[in-house]
């Protein structure tokens, strides 16, 4: 139950979507781009989100693309997580996506919605960060392509009126050795205590995290510590933990101390085989 009214718009092109946003905004409205809608509906119930117009991007062809072409994987932002899992073009992304919420919910949750969401776990961004992907963003000046590292700092830094259209992943990344683990407070469905994803590229580990801090991240300093191969892995992990961004979450999922304990084990579980593999 959405306790306020909005108009629903279904543009069929990027340009139309952007124009709509601008027009609605000029009319004094608060439009939101709308993907799977699960987060908007969830948060509006609790008065944590508001819109008086929603622009559904699921009918924009570019947002629904799943294509491999010229050594590049393109994923539309409006693809549902389960459709990506089933096509499985990027096995690490499949793993990460398949641990988000539950399957029925993932039939609705979109890649773009998860990456750009307010709920701060945004776990599907982890493989994207690891794969140094590029994102295609639509705005009033048309399309632009940027490195994810440029645009995603803790959250997607989209300008007013912009939306995520696609992510583009260099194919050389998708088949790299990888690992993923999601540790929860208890049970198999729910938010993470910690989620860690990693790939090995040119003998270097790329590692990204969710659930540790109130934002997902990949940190150069953390990776440097973890890649200091002259040291035993336990030492590297405990050093890496010193360089985590702040704050470490201390919430209903778990205390700071316990999170770090779980993180330490999670890291050794996925990094040792990856390194040896």
């Amino acid at each position: 139950m959405v306790p306020f009214d909005f108009t629903y718009h279904r543009p069929s092109s990027i340009e139309e979507a952007v124009r709509l946003f601008e027009r609605l905004h000029k009319q004094g409205k608060t439009p939101l781009y709308y993907g799977g809608g699960t987060e908007i509906i969830t948060l509006s119930r609790l008065n944590l989100a508001f819109a008086d117009a929603v622009i559904d991007i699921k009918h924009i062809p570019e947002c629904c693309v799943l294509r491999i072409e010229q050594n590049e994987l393109t994923l539309g932002a409006a693809l549902s997580l389960t459709s990506i899992e089933e096509a499985n073009p990027f096995p690490l992304l499949t793993k990460t996506a398949s641990e988000v919420a539950d399957r029925t919910a993932r039939n609705q949750i979109t890649l773009g919605g998860n990456v750009c969401g307010q709920i701060f776990y945004r776990e599907t961004v982890l493989p994207l960060l690891l794969a140094d992907c590029h994102v295609v963003i639509a705005g009033k000046d048309g399309l632009k392509q940027r490195s994810i590292h440029e645009v995603f700092q803790q959250r997607m830094r989209l300008e007013h009126g912009e939306f995520l259209v696609q992510v583009k992943i260099d194919l050389s990344y998708v088949s790299l050795p990888h690992a993923h683990t999601k540790r929860r407070k208890q049970g198999k469905v729910g938010y993470p205590l910690v989620t860690v994803a990693a790939i090995k590229k040119d003998e270097r580990l790329h590692v990204a995290f969710s659930g540790v801090c109130p934002f997902p991240f990949r940190s150069k300093t953390v990776e440097e510590q973890l890649n200091a191969r002259h040291l035993p892995i336990e030492t590297r992990i405990s050093r890496a933990l010193q360089y985590l961004p702040k704050p470490i979450l201390n919430d209903t999922e778990g205390s700071v101390e316990y999170r770090l304990f779980v993180l330490m084990n999670a890291l050794s579980d996925i990094l040792i085989p990856l390194e040896e593999g």
């Binding site: 208890q186 049970g187 469905v189 729910g190 209903t252």
Partner: peptide, 13 residues
């Protein structure tokens, strides 16, 4: 109460 939702209060599945 911090977890008055089935998303954060999680019965067995």
């Amino acid at each position: 109460i911090l977890n008055a939702q089935l998303r954060t209060y999680r019965p067995i599945r």
